[in-house]
């Protein structure tokens, strides 16, 4: 049974059909990648899954529960955490405070618990801190925990963002171009980390432009073009698919080149 099952998903913005009749499923314990040229609708699909947009048509089933109409915070609580294409950390807060945000949905202390400092509340507070530190260690950024997020180098900010997503205890993490702007060495270690995330039993759904990352890490690749799904399969299958090559290189271009030259300009429909 798939962890995430998307059926006939469609979304239109004004005159632009961003996503049209897309169906796919994400199997638990695997790394699934969504690739496609700019404007293909990848980030839109992520925003539909995570509740930021509401689909015009179609179903999104997560563990057989419908996600349509749920607000983003409720989706997180069900076990789906995300990162953003452009980094969206809380710039004026420390790294640790950022990651502690991920623990919010697993806590329950309210106003009275906070005012009375009840034993349960204090236990929860120390659990929040220690779990946040675990996630920071896992992403190898715990040495920065008291620094302001905005002062971190770009690569580390990305890692903090992943740590924040992991802190929500997700079963599915949705990573939107985690390798964008990273150099070769940094992306290689990112790939290793994504594998480690899977080894923890967490399913990964990935948008990525860096074909090295995609082909190296994915169990399953989905290719999107103009809002429609045009191919899906194992990385090697997808790489050899002529429709995919055409989508990346345009009509009539030489079929010899692999889709490694994908442009890495950011998707037009940012969150």
């Amino acid at each position: 049974m798939p962890l995430l099952d998307v059926q006939d998903l469609s979304k239109r913005f004004g005159g632009l059909q961003a996503v049209e009749g897309v169906s796919f499923s994400v199997e638990p314990g695997r790394i699934t990648s969504l690739i496609g040229p700019n404007g293909a609708g990848k980030t839109t699909i992520f925003n539909l899954i995570t509740g930021i947009y509401r689909p015009d048509r179609g179903m999104i089933l997560y563990k057989e529960m419908s996600l349509v109409g749920r607000r983003p915070h409720a989706v997180v609580k069900l076990g789906i955490a995300r990162t953003f294409q452009g980094i969206r950390l809380f710039p004026g807060l420390t790294v640790r405070e950022n990651v502690m945000a991920g623990r919010h949905c697993r806590g329950k202390a309210g106003v009275f618990a906070a005012l009375l400092r009840s034993p349960g509340q204090r236990r929860e507070e120390s659990e929040i801190r220690s779990r946040a530190d675990d996630c920071l260690r896992f992403m190898h950024v715990d040495q920065h925990r008291y620094e302001l997020a905005r002062n971190l180098p770009y690569g580390d900010q990305r890692r903090v963002e992943v740590a924040r997503a992991l802190a929500t205890d997700p079963e599915l993490v949705v990573l939107d171009e985690p390798a964008a702007g990273l150099n070769e060495e940094e992306s290689a270690s990112l790939v290793a980390l994504i594998r480690q995330i899977r080894e923890q039993g967490i399913t990964v759904l990935l948008i990525e432009h860096d074909m090295k990352v995609v082909m190296g890490v994915s169990d399953h690749v989905l290719v999107l073009d103009n809002g429609r799904l045009i191919a899906g399969g194992r990385p090697d299958e997808v790489q050899a698919n002529p429709r995919v090559i055409e989508a990346y290189l345009g009509c009539g271009a030489g079929a010899a080149a692999a889709p490694g030259a994908a442009p890495d300009v950011e998707d037009a429909r940012d969150v």
Partner: peptide, 17 residues
């Protein structure tokens, strides 16, 4: 404070804004 810093990101991290 998460809401103050970035409301959309807070919502996406599981905070009922």
């Amino acid at each position: 404070m998460y809401v103050r810093e970035d409301e959309a990101a807070a919502e996406a991290m599981g905070i009922d804004t």
